[in-house]
Design a binder for these strands. Sequence first.
DNA 1: CATAAGGTTTCCAGTCACTGGAAGGCAAGG
DNA 2: CCTTGCCTTCCAGTGACTGGAAACCTTATG
Lengths: 138, 138
Amino acid sequence: MHIGIVAEQSGVPTKTIRYYESIGLIRQAQRTGAGYRVYGEHDVQTLRFIQRARGLGFSVHDVSGLLGLWHDAHRTSAQVKDMAKRHRAEIDRKIAELHGMRATLDHLIAQCHGDERPECPILDDLAGETRVSGAADG
Amino acid sequence: MHIGIVAEQSGVPTKTIRYYESIGLIRQAQRTGAGYRVYGEHDVQTLRFIQRARGLGFSVHDVSGLLGLWHDAHRTSAQVKDMAKRHRAEIDRKIAELHGMRATLDHLIAQCHGDERPECPILDDLAGETRVSGAADG
DNA sequence: CATAAGGTTTCCAGTCACTGGAAGGCAAGG
DNA sequence: CCTTGCCTTCCAGTGACTGGAAACCTTATG
């Protein structure tokens, strides 16, 4: 299989496949005489694995770790679960951060008339006058 | 005021102030004979404005727009409110994305024993065998 | 055999918003 | 004069790609 086919079957763009190879996330592909990369079914599986893990928000670094565990017969499920739990905690942190922003924005938007006049509590708040909110101050 | 004092008073690191100047977010500072940047109270206010807007998750590009509106006597509050609402929608999109990931992760974590054995539904799911979840497939 | 279309190669640059570090100049104090 | 600390510029790196250019390969057609 050439890279285009693998891209199609795995859902990972050719550019990204080459990028993954360049950073060592996937092994260097074999080449044809002309220098074309050649892949097998196994590579498609690996790229799908990567694609799903990335879809769950795991960093490329963490995906590398997950691939390692996937291929490690001596892994423990505790190791994998631990990674997943740590990642979930990080997602929770991000969600909380976004919720904080959202709450403040919501409040500011409610205060603003949104008409043709220039008076705007949103800008006033950002400028530090007549503080209207507090959720994203710290 | 020199840059270090402004950094302290605004909460924006010196490196970042120089960076903001380099990309044109803030105007070029005046200089002393020796080349040191010199700032006034106004600059501190501007940097605080920027800091708060960034804290609400606005991109630097959007902050630039907000600064423009802030200094525009002919602005309308509708323009500002519109920007805020668009940004809120983007935040909502991100929150939804993270919630999706979280739900899938939660499900996978619950399935995994997390003991010393290698069997792991998390890896199985990522590998595409015995699909356990569906929340982050698309 | 020439040509054209489309897939592939490498390399460089850009994204976003900084951040770290090096090498050197400047200011204030002892 | 020397030290300490702040300031300057410039370069490089972060994360995870993505776009584009120039050139090469493969296949199909006339």
